[in-house]
């Protein structure tokens, strides 16, 4: 569950951005819509604990994020949250297997190999386990990124513009895959995007207007 109230964030001494209050119940997927510069990414980073130092309240899984120390926030991210970015940002030096298992390692969790194999085969990556990520197609790389985001069994997956760079058919394929994985893993999906094509896929939507400056 996600809930924000009176949330604002100060970029620098001049620019401050405020966000509308909202609550996303557990299991209900949500779109964060808005034009470029409307603060979608900032909001997503605040919700995912990548940005600290906000005014107001951000509660994720019943935890007020501002009460967590930097280290506790790292741990919180590792155990409760998964991220998917527009670019996949797999680590080229590692194999597919290492890229995915990096997630539990960095979060300080024991790797669940059974779950790893299940996820890998459900995403059609079973044969690619030992491949270097440079040998993957774009679609395969995206699936590795998705596997990496869900391996730790997060309660929420935040996706930042996962489809904006894709053509229509790929856009559909990716959002369907995300929804399917979210359903299978019992995970809430929060997608920040300006991609209008996603409007039909996720009904629950929060629209960020032009930033409210003060």
């Amino acid at each position: 569950m996600i809930s924000i109230r009176n949330l604002s964030f100060q970029y620098n001494s001049k620019a401050t951005i405020a966000f509308p209050d909202f609550t996303i119940p557990r299991g209900q997927h949500c779109l964060l819509l808005g034009e470029s510069g409307s603060g979608k990414t900032t909001l997503l980073h605040l919700l995912g604990g990548l940005l600290r130092g906000y005014e107001g309240s951000v509660q994720v899984d019943n935890t007020e994020l501002s009460t967590l120390s930097e280290k506790a926030l790292d741990k919180f991210r590792g155990q409760h949250v998964g991220f998917i970015f527009q670019k996949n940002h797999l680590i080229n030096a590692f194999t597919v297997e290492k890229n995915i298992l990096l997630s539990p390692f960095l979060a300080g969790l024991n790797p669940d190999l059974e779950r790893f194999n299940t996820i890998l085969s459900s995403l059609g990556l079973a044969e690619k386990k030992q491949s270097p990520v440079s040998a993957l197609s774009h679609g395969q790389a995206q699936r590795v990124a998705i596997a990496r985001a869900v391996i730790n069994h997060p309660s929420i997956i935040f996706a930042d513009e996962p489809t904006s760079a894709l053509d229509d058919s790929n856009c559909n394929r990716v959002i369907d895959l995300l929804l399917q994985v979210a359903k299978a893993q019992d995970t809430t999906l929060v997608v920040a995007t300006h991609d209008q094509r996603l409007k039909d896929k996720i009904k629950n939507q929060i629209v960020l207007s032009s930033p409210l400056k003060r």
Binding site: L50, D74, R77, G78, F83, S103, L106, G108
Partner: peptide, 11 residues
């Protein structure tokens, strides 16, 4: 990205 996966600064 590693930090987003929960890696601490010191790691």
């Amino acid at each position: 990205v590693m930090r987003s996966m929960g890696a601490t600064r010191s790691k």
